[in-house]
Design a protein around this nucleic acid. Structure first.
Length: 346
DNA sequence: GAGCCGTGGCC
DNA sequence: TGGCCAAGGCT
């Protein structure tokens, strides 16, 4: 087990990818530890999200809110707008909750144990272990999709997920070293992201090829096995873009619970498998400008986009007219950004 | 345990 | 084109 970790750490030291939340080689050599705020923020953003998608968001967040205290003091809507486009918006709501708990109950410093971290909003088993090991050098077992895949292949675990999860966790625990547990965790995840990939793994250049039982058995690429997934239904709806003469756009804030919760949004009907009745949010000469297609985690969506130029004194039945200059498409979840842009063209 | 919850890239 | 997938957490 120690041999595998040693090979992974050697590989990591020679080929670690640069990411803005990591400490560079020179600073690491000088004994510098990563900023727990940076580790936390990056790990929340990285939940089910690629490094490529996260990097720009991370830079914008730390530039605008350099400390957890600064983030905790920000208005909810500003943070939700900054998160727009990254997805899984419950993460942003819990991000703010967590920042405020850290300030109010921990003096603005993140707790340094896995158990204490686990009690914070938005921090589950994976993230608690990741922060504890990466930021605080704790020997915690980090288990994410990458680690599951690497362990399943390395030990030729054929039992499908999620049944095999605890067995994979036990294997990951056996590999976790006392020294440099955080670098070890990042090494396994980097391996899973770049070499031990879900499809077409690059076994030929793998630093632990000689240790891999899945490779020896010729089944590495088939692992981990998973249960088949359910098909996505298609839902339909109507979304409304009302523009006043002064350019103001009618927007609303979605309820905190549920899909796109807490986000700035265009008024829309319910989304169902049978199209909803036309219920515009305000009076106006409404016309259809096309449709927008979007796929969420568990359903496809087809939205009929309707636009209207409305009078300055229009009083909407729902939502609020927002100054055009204070709002851009990037402040909205992607499905609404698509509709907004389509209406702007048509 | 299983459903809910985004998005963009890949093949 | 469409399904699959990603450094998961919450209910």
């Amino acid at each position: 087990m120690r041999e595998v970790s040693a090979r992974l750490l050697d590989w990591y030291d020679s080929a670690a990818r640069e990411m803005p939340w990591r400490v560079g080689p020179a600073d690491k050599a000088a004994g510098q530890r990563p900023d727990p705020y940076h580790v936390w923020l990056s790990e929340i953003m990285l939940q089910q999200t690629t490094v490529a998608a996260v990097t720009a968001y991370f830079r914008r967040f730390v530039s605008r809110w350099p400390t957890v205290g600064a983030l905790a003091a920000e208005a909810d809507e500003e943070v939700m707008k900054a998160w727009a486009g990254l997805g899984y918006y419950a993460r942003a709501r819990n991000l703010l909750k967590c920042a405020r708990v850290v300030v109010a109950e921990h003096g603005g410093r993140f707790p340094d144990t896995e158990a204490a971290l686990l009690t914070l909003p938005g921090i589950g088993p994976y993230t608690a272990a990741a922060i504890a090991s990466i930021a605080f050098d704790r020997q915690a077992t980090v288990l994410d999709g990458n680690v599951e895949r690497v362990m399943a292949r390395l030990h030729a675990v054929e039992e499908p997920l999620p049944d095999s999860k605890e067995a994979l966790r036990a294997l990951a625990a056996r590999h976790t070293p006392v020294l440099r547990p955080g670098d070890h965790a990042q090494a396994v995840m980097d391996l899973g992201a770049t070499i031990c990939t879900p499809r077409n793994p690059a076994c030929g250049i793998c630093p632990i090829l000689a240790d891999c039982a899945g490779r020896r058995a010729g089944i590495a690429a088939e692992l981990p096995r998973k249960r088949p997934k359910k098909a996505k239904p298609t839902r339909h709806g109507i979304v409304y873009v009302a523009r006043r003469g002064d350019g103001a756009i009618l927007l609303e804030t979605r309820p905190d619970k549920g899909l796109l919760g807490g986000m700035l949004a265009l008024p829309t009907t319910d989304w169902a498998e049978t199209p909803a009745a036309d219920t515009p949010p305000c009076a106006g000469q409404w016309r259809s400008v096309g449709e927008v297609r979007h796929t969420f985690t568990h359903f496809h969506l087809i939205l009929d986009v309707r636009a209207a130029s409305v009078a300055e004194d229009t009083i909407p039945a729902r939502g609020t007219f927002r100054d055009k200059h204070s709002i851009t498409a990037t402040d909205l979840p992607t499905v609404f950004a698509k509709a907004f842009r389509l209406a702007a063209k048509g």
